[in-house]
Amino acid sequence: MAVIHVRDITKIYNKDKVPVHALNGIDLEIQKGEFSAIVGPSGSGKTTLLNIIGGLDEPSSGKVFIEGTDMFALKERKLIDFRLHHIGFVFQAYNLIPVLTALENVSFILQMQGLPTKECRKRGTELLHQVGLEDKIHKRPSELSGGQQQRVAVARALASKPTFVLADEPTANLDSKSATDLLNLMLKLNETEQTTFIFSTHDQRVVERAKRVLTLVDGVIDSDEQK
């Protein structure tokens, strides 16, 4: 079953001045449990596509359906709420809240969903165990390494049990070992929890481990390789 259905998406920046066609008629289906990488040269539209799938950026034309919901037919408030409940994000720069501990960073998303504090802490602790940071739950981001911070970010992305996780260059700021560890972790989560992951990446290690590789060139899907 397709959890993401992208239908004839185009995205044109600077429409009124010098139009830049970032995406040109993308059609794409992502099935539940996929571990997909979107690759391509800089400016090929990877991040734009990811932002549109994540509901952060609106396409110039076309539709995105998440489990049958036309995402951009939702009003802004509903769309934000939809992101909170259905989409997990992992950013290149981790983007953790520096004043919160690892556990609080993970629990915060659940608290935003209105879950009781006790339950949030329980789930947060479980997730940090899952990403191998059980001994760091009370550490602040500044007390963690880059790899550890990105693991907290993965735990945060998984906190709301999302339909899928979008990861924008998740290994770009990590050293080789941390990047490999993170990839192993995400693969394990993919295999054991059936979590759907979609990456945009330049990292060859991610590409090698991905089960599906979509190559974008000049805003169109140049190749779609299933492994």
């Binding site: 802004e76 408030r77 934000i80 709420d81 992101r83 909170l84 409940h85 983007n95 935003m112 709301s160």
Partner: peptide, 16 residues
């Protein structure tokens, strides 16, 4: 800005 952007992205609404 980056942190606030992240909060908005992950679903913290404008009112919050």
């Amino acid at each position: 800005q980056q942190e606030l952007g992240m909060l908005m992205a992950v679903g913290v609404n404008k009112m919050k």
